[in-house]
Amino acid sequence: MAYETQTADLDDPDRIWPTGLTIRESEELHKHVIDGSRVFFLISLIAHILVYVLSPWSF
């Protein structure tokens, strides 16, 4: 079933080189990457604040 679905997808003329994704698909994937980056940024920011409270560094 998975194979059939994905084979049929490849016939879509909107797919572009080199990713093989449509514009909408690539935009959605990009949204996930951006969201993930934001979460990582927020996590690292909080972690750095806590580390600074624990053991302050000087510039």
Binding site: S44, I46, L50, V53, L54, S55, P56
Partner: peptide, 17 residues
């Protein structure tokens, strides 16, 4: 998990916390 160890150490008042 990434922030947990620092949070626990700050909660426990370790180091300069």
């Amino acid at each position: 998990f990434a922030i947990m160890p620092f949070a626990i150490l700050v909660l426990a008042g370790q180091g300069e916390a």
